[in-house]
């Protein structure tokens, strides 16, 4: 067990803002850790609880959700719903014994490439210090 822990992070990014922000970070050659696996979705509110839990259950150490700033949602109010949903889910996760820090929601606009890369670095650090998701172990023993 000397191998260094490299967290796996699943990122669900909204097509209109955060994904474009990530793109911006890329095209501007800003560096950020390669731990995130990005899944592009049309709106952050498209992400339901099931997807997030499934990501954890299939081996993710953390889940990142990126959406538009309030007022900027392409579908007017999707992100308001996302916010509430994620806040409730965070509490539920912590009741279940999964650190709520493993689930993170951020608003990143198409122009905020730097914010995206900084957030990723910071989030990766947080998860690295938290260690592997407790569900990983459970998954392994279930086979």
């Amino acid at each position: 067990m000397t191998e260094e822990f490299k967290p796996k992070i699943v990122g669900f990014l909204c097509n209109w803002c955060c994904y474009a922000g990530a793109d911006m970070a890329g095209t501007s050659r800003m560096k950020y850790p390669s731990n995130i696996r990005i899944i592009r979705v049309m709106c952050s509110s498209r992400i339901n609880t099931e997807m997030i839990i499934k990501a954890f259950q299939t081996g993710a150490d953390a889940v990142f959700i990126g959406g538009c700033h309030f007022g900027d949602c392409h579908y007017v109010d999707g992100n308001y719903r996302t916010k509430k949903r994620i806040d409730v889910l965070k509490r539920l996760l912590s009741h279940m014994g999964i650190e709520q820090e493993r689930l993170r929601l951020e608003w990143v606009s198409a122009a905020e490439g730097e914010k995206f890369s900084k957030t990723m670095a910071e989030f990766t650090d947080t998860i690295t210090s938290l260690g592997p998701s407790p569900l990983r172990e459970i998954k392994e023993e279930a086979i």
Binding site: E50, I53, Q57, L92, L93, L135, I138
Partner: peptide
Amino acid sequence: FPIYHVIRAF
């Protein structure tokens, strides 16, 4: 564990 019960609770 724990998706079934998390879905229901949520």
